[in-house]
């Protein structure tokens, strides 16, 4: 079964229940968009799926393998966190070779956006360049499922298009779960939209659903 399956996720912080009733599935070839207000638990859910955060309760299964922690998800899930995660003292070309197989590494090294960065260390890149590199690395990683938290944050509009096209292209062979406050970009590429509301997940079929659950206002497009 080519599917990432998540259910029964419960997580609280200091007595406040953030996630209570989460059900989520993502097949290879599918892009799932997760939306929710600030503090709704989007990043928390991603970290729990990835295995870097302990949940009070969870069930995560990836293609018949039950994921209990980071050790179990090797080559199955990659995760782009909200903040910059690349060490500053390493050359871009070295990082690419670490993250990608040979074919993807050479693909990435010849990319017009990445090529000018190759001989630099990540500490020499601007915040925007670093974000583009991080997004591209995660998308090109060997993992079968990729979790992406705020890929469009701090990225110029023209590069947002490049990121969207790349995710679309790679979604043919892997599953993506993506979240971003720039919901229009998420709506553009997602096959399904899941809204986190009051700790639970609601599948949204039309934009009106986002208004109904109070994620966007009535007059927002």
């Amino acid at each position: 079964m080519n599917e990432l399956h998540v259910d029964s996720v419960m997580k609280s912080f200091g007595g406040r229940q953030v996630l209570t009733d989460v059900f989520l599935s993502c097949s290879r070839g599918e892009i799932i968009g997760i939306l929710g207000k600030n503090g709704a638990g989007k990043s928390t859910l991603m970290k729990i799926i990835f295995g870097s955060m302990q949940a009070d309760q969870k069930f995560v299964r990836i293609e018949n393998k039950i994921i209990k922690g980071l050790r179990d998800n090797q080559n199955l899930v990659s995760y782009l966190p909200q903040n910059h995660f690349l060490p500053n003292h390493v050359k871009v070309s070295t990082i690419i070779s670490l993250f990608c197989n040979k074919a993807n590494a050479s693909l990435l090294k010849t990319n017009d956006l990445i090529r000018p960065m190759l001989d630099k260390k990540t500490g020499q890149l601007s915040a925007g360049e670093k974000r583009i590199l991080e997004v591209f690395l995660i998308i090109h990683s060997d993992a079968k499922y990729t979790l992406i938290d705020e890929p469009f944050n701090g990225v110029s509009p023209i590069y947002k298009e490049a990121i969207k096209n790349l995710i679309k292209e790679h979604s043919k062979r892997k599953g993506f779960i993506i979240t971003d406050h720039d919901y229009r970009n998420v709506l553009d590429i997602a096959d399904r939209i899941i809204l986190i509301h009051d700790g639970g997940t609601k599948e949204i079929h039309e934009k009106e659903g986002l208004k109904f659950w109070g994620y966007i206002s009535e007059n927002q497009e």
């Binding site: 980071l70 080559n75 060490p87 993250f99």
Partner: peptide, 15 residues
């Protein structure tokens, strides 16, 4: 100082 850097190593298979 750099707790986010752990994600670099998590993605490479370390905990």
């Amino acid at each position: 100082r750099h707790p986010e850097e752990y994600y670099f190593y998590y993605n490479l298979g370390f905990n």
